[in-house]
Amino acid sequence: MRILTCLRARENRLTQRMASWESAWARTLLPSVEDAAEHTKLWWAAAALMASRGGWRGRRAAAAGIASMAVGQVLANGIAKQLIERRRPPKEWFPHDEVEERPESSSFPSGHTAAAVAFTAGILPIWPWAGAACAVPTVLVAVERVHDGAHYPSDVTAGAAIGLASAALIRVIPRLLAHP
């Protein structure tokens, strides 16, 4: 129990530190990233661009990214958030206005991070260059979720783990079906 109390206290301090991060570029960039990632718009746009401009590799990567993202969304938002109830970080920790627009759902896990990581991890083995390009906004989405008061770092970490597991599942299912 003592270890959990210590970990929780450290996470609270980290959350407060990230919330009070004063940076002009962060105040400009992170809200834009959040808007683009809302309802997975950013990832659908990336998939459309890959599918239309990337030939067979782009279409295959886009399909894998979307499938991975869908599984990640179901696991994070459809299952995990329903099983684990966790309050969002206290509003008092956040000195900026973004904290007022937080969802009412459970904080654990981060569905935005799960979708972002699942999409990126889904396309990475098929088209590494596109996966690397998508990794940049993926990291920004994860940082933004803590910075704006929607999540604790462990929520984001859990969302990332769900995203990675979703992409791995999408890669392994065809092999399992091909070899009974």
Rank of each mutant, 00 (worst) to 15 (best):
T15K: 00
R60E: 13
V71F: 05
A114G: 12
H39G: 09
Q73G: 07
V143C: 11
T113R: 07
A61H: 04
V74T: 12
H179P: 13
G122Q: 11
S106P: 11
V99N: 02
S154C: 03
R86H: 10
A47D: 11
G78S: 03
E34H: 05
S154N: 02
E98D: 07
P95Y: 00
A45W: 15
P90K: 13
Q73L: 05
I84A: 13
L42S: 01
L164Q: 03
A130Y: 03
P174N: 06
F108C: 09
E34G: 05
S68N: 06
A63Q: 14
V117T: 15
C134W: 00
A165L: 10
A150Y: 01
A70M: 15
M50V: 04
M1L: 10
D148T: 06
A115P: 08
L75K: 01
W56Y: 02
H151C: 02
A63K: 07
R86I: 03
R13Y: 04
A48D: 09
R2T: 10
S32N: 03
L4T: 10
S110G: 10
A130W: 07
C6Q: 02
S68L: 06
L140H: 12
R175P: 01
A80E: 04
A62L: 09
E100L: 06
T5S: 12
H112D: 10
E38S: 09
A168C: 02
V117Q: 09
G55K: 02
R59L: 03
G149I: 02
H179T: 15
L75F: 02
E104P: 00
Q82Y: 08
S107G: 13
W56I: 13
A24V: 12
P109M: 09
G159T: 12
E98P: 00
I162N: 06
R60N: 04
A70I: 11
L29V: 14
T120N: 01
A47P: 14
T15M: 08
A158M: 13
I79W: 10
S107E: 03
K41T: 11
V117N: 14
N12Q: 08
H147D: 08
A115I: 14
F108T: 08
S110Q: 05
E11L: 06
V143H: 03
S68A: 15
L29S: 04
M50G: 04
V71P: 05
A178L: 09
E98L: 07
F119E: 14
H112K: 06
A19H: 10
E85Y: 13
F94Y: 14
H147T: 00
H151V: 00
A142Y: 02
F94H: 15
A37F: 03
T28E: 11
A167D: 01
A178Y: 03
C6S: 10
R8K: 06
Q73S: 13
R13Q: 05
T113W: 11
I66R: 12
P95T: 11
R59M: 09
G58D: 05
D35W: 09
Q16A: 12
E11Q: 07
E11I: 00
H179A: 15
V74K: 00
T113C: 08
A165W: 10
E144W: 02
L30T: 03
T120G: 01
G159A: 08
P89F: 10
A133K: 01
E104G: 12
W44S: 04
I173V: 15
H96T: 07
D97C: 00
Q73H: 10
E22V: 00
A135C: 09
R88H: 14
E22F: 00
Y152W: 14
Y152G: 01
P109A: 15
S110R: 05
E34I: 04
W25Y: 10
A9C: 01
V139Q: 06
L4Y: 05
